[in-house]
């Protein structure tokens, strides 16, 4: 089992003829992912690594019954690509682009919610259920099928921790990047619940960071809804206080945005606190 995707997931790649899209499609195929279609406007009829390319998502969905999409398009095109996928009946969309305007992200997330579509991103490496389905860009060397569920705001931080897991002989059930924010559809709390319900997942690694208040909500979920062990690593303990957006940022969230306040809340909720990836591995060995 895995969360959000399965062997039955039929993947469509938006921007498949671009340099990144083409490269990552090859990696996803090699991982065993069922990539059924690619979309690049104006390149319909082409074939990339054996995958047929269409001009429009709706054509690709009609022909191939694709039900999940990952977009390798620049930030200026992210809104258009995501809205096209959502309107064409895709059930699950991954938006990898970073630096997507907030207004565009609001449109993507609201369209998704109105249509019952789940979204990861923007600014996400996507997700991978090692050995089953890869709808993302995680480096292959750091992936191995196993029982640890990993959820992260930062892509690179999840690679780092997955590297340590694999080097310690541990594997992952799913590795999910929810995106760098500041807006999210699926957040840490959603993923904690999914991992709690997933029979393959025996322990969860929660990777948080300074800024926002999402980890405080996650702490509440851990305390009230979970019995699987959660290991939390929150980075940014030694970061200087970031630039505040006027008074509104402080008024909305108060002092809860620091890494230390999040670590305190997660600790109080019963999560095991790690200060670095080595301690994540130590905790995992302790609970297994």
């Amino acid at each position: 089992m895995s969360v959000l995707v399965s062997r039955q997931t039929r993947v469509l790649v938006q921007g498949i003829t671009g340099k990144v899209g083409e490269y990552q499609t090859a990696v996803m195929l090699k991982h065993g992912t069922t990539v059924v279609a690619g979309v690049t406007p104006g390149k319909g009829g082409a074939v990339v690594h054996g995958v047929p390319v269409y001009d429009f998502v709706r054509e690709a969905v009609e022909d191939t019954e694709a039900n999940a999409a990952i977009a390798f398009v620049p930030a200026v095109s992210a809104r258009g690509a995501a809205l096209e996928a959502i309107s064409a009946g895709i059930e699950f969309a991954v938006v990898t682009a970073s630096n997507v305007p907030v207004r565009d992200t609001m449109d993507i997330l609201n369209a998704a919610r109105a249509n019952g579509v789940r979204v990861l991103g923007p600014d996400t490496p996507g997700l991978v259920a090692p050995g089953l389905c890869k709808l993302g860009v995680h480096p292959e060397r750091f992936l191995r099928m196993g029982t640890v569920g990993v959820v992260s705001r930062s892509g690179a931080l999840s690679y780092e921790v997955c590297k340590h897991l694999v080097e310690a002989g541990l594997g992952q059930s799913s590795v999910v990047g929810i995106g760098g924010g500041p807006l999210w559809d699926l957040d840490q709390s959603d993923l904690l619940r999914l991992f709690q319900a997933d029979p393959q997942t025996e322990a969860i690694v929660l990777l948080g960071e300074v800024g926002g208040t999402m980890e405080h909500r996650a702490a509440k979920v851990i305390r009230e809804e979970m019995n699987k062990p959660v290991i939390a690593l929150v980075v940014g303990r030694s970061a200087p206080h970031g630039r505040k957006m006027g008074h509104a940022g402080a008024i909305i969230s108060g002092p809860d945005e620091t890494a230390v306040s999040k670590i305190d809340a997660l600790k109080a909720s019963g999560a095991l606190i790690a200060r670095n990836p080595l301690e994540v591995v130590d905790h995992l060995r302790g609970v297994s």
Binding site: A156, L157, Y159, E160, G180, L233, V235, G236, S238, A239
Partner: peptide
């Protein structure tokens, strides 16, 4: 950002 903050810590 995440790996930078981790390295900083």
């Amino acid at each position: 950002a995440g790996t930078g903050l981790l390295t900083l810590d």
